[in-house]
């Protein structure tokens, strides 16, 4: 009797929805217990409760710096969207432009961005400008590549159908190319926002006077190890939030591209 009741109780829960929360909670519990059992000193690996305490103690500063990082990231990301779209459309416009600029883009993208930050600091001084620019530089590449690829892979038959009717390049782009590259574009936003975030934090840890990256660096210098970890977790939360937002935007904007039901 009790067995059937239990089963219906368990089957009413949506395990897929619960899974991420359970896994996260599990990780922290495991972490807490491990620190406690092996008696790890807090300046090596602080326990989650200790980190939470630090986060509480430095709450206002952590909040302010998180907002700063968020702002920097979004500014860089916004620039990346504008320029990435424009450059992607330009590159995808014509096979020759695509062929000419693609290797340059690859070359540019393979420069480690850490190496660029000092140059940006040299040009713009320490502060938020290099952070925004690093976020921009690191995140616009996937947008460009995805938009250009969407345009460059129009089915030749579709192009023939339209061209035979006297369609101009502009018609083909607006009717087929651009709508076609939108799922690629929105798909790339998820990747781009994560990269923008990495870029801004990277620049903040090198040369800035605010932001979570800067706060981490200061905390480390003061040997406030729990605060360093609190900063890390704040970054993780922000990263997840932005990724989730972009994934949601992608689903909303390009439902037709997810028609296979494979991901459902």
């Amino acid at each position: 009797m009790t067995a059937t009741v239990e089963r219906s109780w368990a089957s009413r829960l949506d395990w897929v929805k619960l899974a991420p929360w359970l896994c996260t909670a599990g990780l922290f519990i495991f972490w807490e217990i491990a620190v406690w059992i092996f008696d790890v000193p807090y300046y090596i690996l602080p326990s989650p409760t200790r980190i939470a305490h630090a986060a509480w103690e430095f709450g206002p500063g952590l909040w302010r710096n998180s907002l700063q990082t968020l702002w920097t990231t979004l500014a860089g990301f916004g620039l990346a969207i504008v320029f990435g779209l424009a450059l992607g459309l330009f590159i995808g416009w014509d096979k020759r432009i695509y062929a000419g600029l693609y290797p340059l883009m690859i070359g540019f993208n393979s420069i480690p961005k850490v190496a660029v930050v000092p140059i940006l600091v040299l040009w713009f001084g320490a502060g938020w400008v290099p952070a925004v620019l690093t976020a921009f530089l690191i995140s616009f590449f996937p947008i460009v590549v995805n938009v250009a690829t969407g345009l460059a892979t129009i089915e030749p038959e579709m192009e023939d159908v339209l061209r035979a009717l006297g369609a101009k390049k502009m018609d083909i782009m607006t009717k087929v190319g651009i709508p076609r590259s939108l799922p690629y574009f929105f798909g790339s936003l998820k990747v781009a926002i994560t990269l923008a975030f990495i870029g801004s934090v990277l620049s903040e840890t090198i040369a800035a006077n605010s932001g979570v990256g800067h706060m981490m660096l200061t905390a480390q210098a003061n040997f406030e190890v729990p605060l360093v970890f609190a900063c890390l977790i704040a970054l993780a939360i922000e990263g997840i939030g932005m990724y989730a937002l972009m994934a949601w935007v992608e689903m909303r904007m390009t439902g037709w591209a997810h028609r296979s039901g494979f991901n459902r």
Partner: peptide, 18 residues
């Protein structure tokens, strides 16, 4: 130039999914 009085269909129907 393109002959607009023509209509074309191919083996691949290439419809725009959106």
């Amino acid at each position: 130039g393109p002959v607009a009085i023509a209509g074309m269909a191919f083996q691949n129907p290439v419809m725009l999914p959106w």
